[in-house]
Design a protein around this nucleic acid. Structure first.
Lengths: 238, 238
DNA sequence: CGCCAGCTTGAATCTACTCAAATCTTGTGG
DNA sequence: CCACAAGATTTGAGTAGATTCAAGCTGGCG
């Protein structure tokens, strides 16, 4: 019992899914069994390739990945980040083809996501997960379309904070951000140089610190107010 | 039989769904019955409101709508356009809440989308529809993040052409574009003034004409090549 | 036929980009 | 444990693409 509780609290992927929807014992066990069989993926390797058939749904257990698109002339856009507890390749359709490439940004561990047939309680968690992912895509569109550089950075950081909190990987505005400024720039539709300048400005303004991969947002609520950000919600429950 | 064929060819919504997945007679009849009970929505009225519970899935039968988000200071971003044959509010989850507002840009007709239980053949069509919608959100992200003004306009026009062709509402690079330049600007993350300038430039360059709401892309394939655009695909079939 | 929304044009400004070089970190092999 | 290399961050100067503000135009509709 104690051991079980410990695993539960400690495993970010499990924790996130539990936060999205109530899971029964069957679902929890199916997830733990799946996670136990997870495999590693090295940084820069693909979890999924654009145009390639999607064979199974993956659950990210550890590490960061990113859904990217590369233009013919080398410009790169990161559509979103994939964090522990996120599902990739979820889609109720036959013969699905991936509409973007997903690559590991850090060492990543993934497992095959348990089938809903084996644990029906997962259906709601998976559905909510997918709905949240869509909502974050919309947020990314608004960010790129209508926010300036400073707002984009703040808004993305607040989003990452919110998402990592679900998985128990962040609290009090503090989390590990294992990305380079160049990667950030590719997500924000900016250049690395400009991201750098805006980060310095935010540091000087006392909004945040970021050193040796640890980001601290000094006052998340105030920053959210400043850039006009509201948390993402996709269900009436919770 | 002839009458049936005629309805089929003529109804853009039905035509689009048939293009996404094979439908059997049951599905077709369920759709026709639903479409027959469609209701009108005036321009500027909401089909769905951010934060409000989603009660039913809607099928757009006629007209254009847009998924929008308005920032506290009045800036507006259009995330995507909703065209005839598109489904809104599709999501396999309980107690869903809309993550954005959808408003009619023209007079719109919608109906309640037939339930999958009543016509199982629709499941694949709905799933593919949802996958395509997601793919277009990704395309919008890449557009806003990494394309310049000229490329954004061309890429969006080509996307609209592609989508309207599915519904039989466009051919040979020609379709009705019932939007103002300001609306276009809100979709493209630009100002109306700049959209205007770029449109003129595109006209002068002989890329397109747009008068009295009819847009003509003179050479879609060439333009697609020029801005590096590939058609969206989400299944191995087709 | 006059009005109003939408379109067009110009000039000044600003945000973000480009290019280039210097400095700092981090990881690795000796 | 240090030295080095490679990668990442920082800074500067000049430029380009897009915005802002403002004014004039046009065409569709009452």
């Amino acid at each position: 019992m104690i051991a079980e509780d410990y695993r539960h609290i400690d495993a970010p992927a499990l924790r996130r899914l539990e936060a999205l929807a109530p899971l029964d014992q069957t679902a929890r066990q199916a997830l733990q069994a799946a996670i136990a069989r997870s495999r590693k993926i090295a940084p820069r390797r693909e979890l999924m390739i654009e145009g390639r058939e999607v064979k199974e749904t993956l659950l990210v257990v550890r590490g960061w990945a990113a859904r990217i698109r590369i233009l013919s002339d080398g410009r790169r856009q990161i559509m979103n980040f994939t964090l522990p507890g996120d599902l990739v390749g979820l889609c109720g359709q036959e013969n699905p083809v991936s509409s973007a490439t997903i690559i590991a940004m850090t060492p990543v561990a993934v497992c095959t996501a348990p089938d809903i047939a084996a644990a029906p309680a997962l259906a709601q968690a998976y559905a909510v997960s997918r709905a949240r992912e869509e909502a974050y895509l919309l947020a990314q569109i608004a960010r790129l379309g209508r926010l300036n550089a400073h707002e984009r950075i703040a808004d993305l950081f607040l989003e990452l904070l919110e998402r990592l909190e679900f998985a128990g990987l962040a609290s009090h505005g503090r989390f590990v951000l294992p990305l380079t400024q160049e990667v950030l720039a590719d997500a924000l539709g900016l250049t690395a140089v400009h991201v750098n300048r805006m980060l310095q400005q935010a540091r000087r303004a006392g909004e945040l610190s970021w050193q040796s991969k640890e980001l601290v947002i000094h006052d998340p609520a105030a920053l959210a107010r400043q850039v006009g950000r509201a948390p993402v919600r996709v269900t009436t429950a919770g």
